[in-house]
Computed example of a mutant assay.
Amino acid sequence: MQIVVFKLGDEYFAVNTEKVQSINDIMSITKVPKAPSHIKGLINLRGSIKSLVDINLLLNISHSENQENIIILDVDGEEIGILVDRVEEVLSLDDKELRTLDSESSEDYIQGIIKYEDKLLIVIDIKKLLN
Rank of each mutant, 00 (worst) to 15 (best):
N60A: 14
D54I: 01
I114T: 02
N16L: 12
K31Q: 15
R99H: 15
Q21W: 05
N24F: 01
H63M: 11
K40D: 06
K34G: 00
R46Q: 13
E88G: 00
D102H: 09
P33G: 07
I29D: 03
V32F: 06
D10V: 14
L120H: 11
N66I: 07
E65M: 09
V123K: 02
E18Q: 13
L83H: 01
I26T: 12
L130C: 02
I43F: 01
I110L: 06
V4Q: 03
K50L: 15
Y116E: 05
E89G: 01
I82E: 07
S105E: 15
D102P: 13
D25P: 00
Y12E: 12
D10A: 11
Y116L: 01
I49H: 08
S22F: 02
S37E: 12
D108R: 03
D125A: 04
I80G: 05
D125Y: 05
L52D: 12
V15K: 01
M27W: 03
I126Q: 02
L129I: 03
D94V: 04
S22H: 08
L57K: 14
Q67M: 14
H38I: 00
D74Q: 11
K50N: 14
M27D: 02
Q2S: 14
S62Q: 10
L45S: 11
L83Y: 13
L59V: 03
K127L: 09
S106I: 06
S28P: 00
G77V: 10
L58V: 01
A35L: 10
S106E: 05
L121Y: 00
N131K: 14
D10P: 09
G41I: 06
E18G: 05
L129N: 03
E89I: 05
